[in-house]
């Protein structure tokens, strides 16, 4: 019984993880860039949600409607001002650049809102829904459902719109994309902005589910990298699958081993997967191999 309960909680959290990871994997797929600042973007959105919630009292999950376009704009700016200017060995330099961005953002958040932990606590945060012998915390339930809805919307954008078609073509067949006149620069800017926008929605959910501080982005980027590396860089279904596996694994670890070691699962997965199966479960190859 307790095991199934743990499993259920794991699945709920997996939905949110999947949404958070979708942006990271999308950006990698289109640009071959690991956006290490993705965790920082989540935390920015969480802080914005917290500030708006305090100011207006609006529901934090509803505030995703504000943070999503806000982070879209932020992502577009970051691409325009930083990413686009990268030269040299872009893959490695992009990691350094986005890492530096994450550190700067962490500092800025700390200057504005101090380095303390915050949490958004709407009325339902302590309530839960009973489902037979199990209980589902309401915040987790709503966030999970919302995450799945946003993911579906993202899927529709990618599958049904011209923008989505351009992004998919640029990911799957860059040469064809160039041939049919898809402007690669625009596609990259859009992909980066959409990736950041998912972090916007994800950050609003984060603010309800977990306490957060400016330094939380390290934890979050580790989680997301674990998920995306396991699922396979660049693959959206892979991100969902990775989120499911790791969401459940993390919940099980904290229940049956120790909360202290729960994040270790992600680090370990990053390590082991990159070594044994660099393409993850469903994705592109992140690891450039060297002759042995």
């Amino acid at each position: 019984m307790a095991f199934v309960q743990t499993l259920l909680l794991g699945v709920l959290v997996a939905g949110v993880y999947a949404l958070m990871a979708s942006g990271l994997t999308l950006i990698f797929g289109v640009m071959n860039i690991v956006n290490v600042a993705h965790g920082a973007m989540l935390v920015v959105s969480a802080f914005v949600t917290w500030a708006l919630w305090r100011a207006t009292g609006l529901d934090p999950l509803l505030l995703a409607l504000a943070t999503t376009p806000l982070m879209f704009g932020f992502g577009w700016l970051v691409h325009r001002l930083l990413i686009r200017r990268l030269g040299g060995d872009p893959a490695t330099m992009a990691v350094l650049l986005t890492f530096a961005l994450a550190v700067a953002v962490e500092g800025l958040l700390g200057l504005v809102w101090s380095g303390d932990y915050r949490a958004v606590t709407p009325s339902y945060v302590a309530r839960s829904v009973r489902l037979g012998p199990f209980f589902l915390p309401e915040a987790q339930l709503y966030a999970g459902l919302l995450a799945v809805a946003v993911l579906l919307a993202l899927h529709l954008v990618l599958a049904r719109t011209r923008v989505g078609w351009a992004i998919r073509t640029a990911t799957e067949n860059p040469q064809l994309a160039a041939l049919v006149g898809v402007d690669p620069e625009r596609v990259r800017a859009l992909a980066f902005a959409i990736g950041a926008a998912t972090a916007g929605a994800g950050g609003s959910m984060l603010s309800v589910l977990y306490p957060f501080s400016p330094a939380s982005h390290y934890l979050w980027i580790s989680r997301l990298l674990g998920i995306v590396v396991l699922g396979g860089m660049g693959s959206l279904p892979g991100a969902a699958l990775g989120a499911l596996v790791l969401g459940v694994a993390e919940t099980l670890t904290s229940t049956y081993v120790s909360v202290k070691w729960a994040t270790g699962v992600f680090y370990l997965v990053i390590f082991v997967v990159l070594l044994l199966r660099p393409q993850g479960l469903l994705g592109l190859r992140l690891r450039q191999d060297v002759p042995q």
């Binding site: 990691v95 990298l225 070594l275 690891r287 191999d289 060297v290």
Partner: peptide, 12 residues
Amino acid sequence: MMRARGHAFVIM
């Protein structure tokens, strides 16, 4: 770790 290079190495 050094069987991988580029961003995979950095991430590891």
